[in-house]
Nucleic acid binder design. Structure first.
Lengths: 201, 201
DNA sequence: ACCTGAACACCGTTCAAGT
DNA sequence: ACCTGAACACCGTTCAAGT
């Protein structure tokens, strides 16, 4: 009856990937709390508990989404770290802005990532992925230490200081702004403050 | 039939307060996503939509909870700001630790507060309360500027730098730790880094 | 191995009604 | 003004079954 052979005994080969993709789109549309597995399966065109083979429950799907997010953020950090700005703080600002852009383009995902990590029974793979990504972020940020632009000290701790400031800016902001000022701009000021220090020289 | 007169035509005078209190306890027990209005009403002993007069829907109750949280955090900031430590960074550390303690004692509430603030249709009262509280936090933190311990500049911006770092530490941490180190301890190092600056002097 | 279909317990929300 | 009780549409999850 059909011109193309679409026997389609099962879905289309990769229901797991299709679910993750549709779920990511849905949370950006309606927020994480608005995600419905049933609606997801309706969109994709499978029965309401086809997902169960891939994700035993909703939580597991959310965790998988968060893990994917951390992996992508890790790539963002690694790419931004290879920038070749001369000035140390300019380089940090590049990393920070890449981080901010990612958070802004994937608001719900970003929130989900950090919320999942905090959850009581979070799986180790997720925690490990988060740790790896944040470590990459921290080290991307203190790359300049090698050229003597940064004080001596535990690089992880110095990276943490900068990373925390950027992360904090995002958690303090609303709609990408704080008191009306875009955080991309605030990030520059905050980073300058940290590099130079608050104490008079 | 009863020795005490408990006509109890309605609940016990303040269903609204009772709901908020029970809801706060419940989210700390089972997380925000685990909060059920129906279970709440069962606990309190009213019908399943008695809440509706006080909170037209679940979201409104969550927003009210978040608002209450910001008000309490504001008080924490104001109290911590009146500390009389000599050293500037010691004073900041006091504020930071008070912030961290609040976040640790009210994990779910704290997450709810910052998540609510980011939500698309967040009510203005909530945004205003958040702004007021965070401003209080920022200014608590640059209190030392008046004694010349801090460089000149927009105090809001300087406060933001410190506040963002502390806030970021908490969002990066898991279970109050980052790479196994308690954030109370990390906060001290991070604050010292910011006050002194990363650049060699 | 991967999916369907029907069922279960629970949920938030709405409506008509009671005092 | 404040609450009840019944109903509605929807949800996540489970179970038995099909290929």
């Amino acid at each position: 009856m059909s011109l193309v052979e679409k026997d389609k005994p099962y879905h289309h080969g990769d229901l797991r990937a299709a679910l993750l993709k549709a779920a990511e789109a849905m949370i950006e549309r309606v927020g994480v709390e608005g995600l419905s597995l049933r609606e997801l399966t309706r969109e994709i065109g499978v029965s309401s508990n086809a997902p169960r083979r891939h994700f035993p429950n909703k939580q597991v799907l959310l965790d998988a989404l968060a893990l994917q997010g951390f992996e992508r953020l890790g790539m963002v950090f690694r790419r931004a770290a290879s920038s070749n700005e001369r000035e140390f703080s300019q380089r940090i600002i590049k990393v920070a802005k890449a981080n901010i852009r990612f958070a802004m383009k994937n608001r719900s995902l970003y929130r989900l990532m950090f919320a999942s990590k905090q959850r009581a029974g979070a799986p180790v793979e997720l925690l490990d992925a988060a740790k790896a990504t944040l470590t990459a972020g921290g080290s991307a940020v203190v790359y300049g230490q090698s050229v003597g632009a940064v004080i001596a000290g535990d690089p992880d701790q110095l990276g943490l200081t900068l990373l925390a400031a950027v992360e904090g800016l995002m958690s303090l902001s609303v709609d990408g702004k704080f008191n009306g000022v875009p955080i991309e701009h605030l990030a520059e000021q905050v980073i300058e403050n940290i590099v130079l220090g608050l104490k008079p020289r």
